[in-house]
Design a protein around this nucleic acid. Structure first.
Lengths: 123, 123
DNA sequence: CCGTATCCGTTATGATACTG
DNA sequence: CAGTATCATAACGGATACGG
């Protein structure tokens, strides 16, 4: 079967990872932590994201109360997204992990290279 | 295309989430943080994990230098897994996120319920 | 401008069977 | 006990076209 929800496992951390473990949520949260942003503006910044995935990602974040959606009453209707207080606090927790990642990335890359060297593609 | 590596995005946090974002890595790290454990013992504890996924998960964690693998010279050969120092430090970073998750889970569930109530399955 | 709906290829993963 | 190989399948995500 697919990957998601392999186990409910009433573990709070799973709830969070199911949300931010995907490819885009973290990037969106990071971007919104700089300030409110409109849909297409986000698209331009994250550029590689498809319209569909940005839409899905934002909807999920909004559903969890991490992002708020504000429809502006302008001539071409605009929609502005921003982090809620909860989203901002999550951003803090993520930053902690991001700091760990930056600190250990060199070591991890070294480990990977060493591991791969021992197990060549062909046997 | 598939889900993984939608964007390389030279962002260290992605490297970490690509590793621990999956369903099992966090559970394995959590379990090993309690102390060394053998393969089938892990299987029993995490119970819902398939043999294949435990194998794959452990291999990836080992590749990143987060887990060490020790073959014991016993009659039926046994293999003991344990967190490396790096793995232990990641566990610390995860714990921080886990704490956030536990703190905010009730609020998130409330938000989800409210959101879903507004958008019924049938329109 | 801001999305949603559909189609469809790619990938992750469980089941099963087999090896050391 | 501790894995690996193969297969089938469900889920993910991009492209595209359309709607508000």
């Amino acid at each position: 079967m697919g990957r998601r929800r392999a186990l409910e496992y009433d573990c709070a951390i799973r709830d969070v990872l199911d949300r931010i473990g995907d490819a885009w949520s973290v990037l969106v949260i990071m971007e919104l932590s700089k300030g409110p942003c409109r849909f297409n503006a986000l698209r331009r910044v994250i550029e590689a994201i498809s319209q569909r995935m940005l839409s899905v990602t934002l909807r999920n974040l909004e559903r969890d109360g991490l992002v708020s959606r504000q429809v502006l009453d302008t001539s071409p209707p605009q929609v502005e997204y921003s982090l809620t207080e909860r989203g901002a606090s999550l951003h803090g927790a993520i930053s902690h992990l991001a700091h760990w990642a930056e600190t250990h990335q060199p070591g991890i890359r070294t480990s990977r290279a060493a591991y791969d060297a021992k197990e060549p593609i062909a046997s």
